[in-house]
């Protein structure tokens, strides 16, 4: 399989705080890469370098290279909205914007200039189905997104990211606040989605990584300790620290 994203020698600092230390990582197309590691290991910061969301923090310094389909996304003439439409993101806590379900989903497409009502409606149906939410909300698309349950909100956020028609989807601990049932719904959705998209999933939950990931990267203190297939990482980890983490000695 070809590499969708290539990360070379990535370093990231907030002021004097060195958060990511020379990360090299290839993310293949149409796979789910899970990134695991204890809190504060730099997982989320790494994820946010992929759609340049760290840029909004003015103290950030980033060196190294990230290539998306061979294009350096930190090149000067990259338009951020373009990048962020290509690389959709779902956050740890579901944040529906204070507007209706429908309006939440069409927010991105509208900004991109889609105005046709038929096209928007089609998009809403398609993405809600892909996020396994359509049946639950199809009769009340004009209900405020904030009125949904936590699990529904998170699936709405996934649908909203899908509506951008991205190529890559970043998920930042998308199930951290959810009950097991909602979690399994979302994992189901992810499994379907990888046929079309490249997915990067940050998770605190090693079991989740074992369930859904094709490959796993283990982060610790801003370094990538080990990268390998899910099977290899969870059965014969090469690094002692990886083994300690996945067997629950720390984390």
């Amino acid at each position: 399989m070809e590499d969708k994203i290539v990360v070379k020698g990535l370093n990231l600092c907030f002021d004097t705080h060195h958060v990511l230390k020379s990360i090299d990582l290839n993310i293949r197309a149409n796979e789910i890469l899970s990134i695991i590691g204890p809190a504060n290991s730099g997982k989320t910061s790494f994820l946010r370098t992929l759609n340049r969301l760290n840029d909004i923090i003015s103290t950030v310094k980033i060196t190294g290279e990230i290539l998306l389909d061979g294009i350096d996304i930190y090149k000067k003439d990259i338009l951020l909205p373009w990048l962020r439409r290509k690389v959709g993101m779902v956050f740890a806590l579901p944040v529906p914007l204070p507007r209706s379900i429908f309006e939440n989903i069409v927010y991105g497409p509208r900004l991109n200039g889609v105005t046709s009502k038929a096209k928007l409606e089609e998009l809403v149906e398609k993405t809600l189905k892909a996020a396994f939410l359509w049946d639950e909300v199809k009769d009340r698309l004009h209900l405020s997104g904030t009125k949904l349950s936590g699990g529904q909100q998170q699936r709405l956020c996934i649908a909203r990211a899908l509506a951008l028609e991205p190529e890559v989807i970043l998920l930042d601990e998308p199930c951290s606040g959810l009950d097991p049932l909602s979690t399994s719904r979302i994992e189901e959705a992810l499994y379907e989605l990888k046929k079309q998209y490249t997915i990067v999933l940050v998770t605190n939950n090693t079991k989740q990584a074992a369930r859904v990931g094709d490959n796993v990267a283990f982060f610790l203190m801003g370094e990538m300790i080990e990268y390998g297939s899910t099977e290899q990482i969870f059965t014969v980890p090469h690094d002692k620290r990886t083994e300690d983490y996945i067997t629950g000695r720390f984390g």
């Binding site: 759609n51 969301l53 909004i56 951020l80 909205p81 373009w82 962020r84 439409r85 959709g88 993101m89 956050f91 944040v95 914007l97 927010y107 991105g108 900004l111 991109n112 956020c157 909203r160 990211a161 951008l164």
Partner: peptide, 8 residues
Amino acid sequence: EVSLSLGA
């Protein structure tokens, strides 16, 4: 963050 991540 959400709005920016949606390409705004």
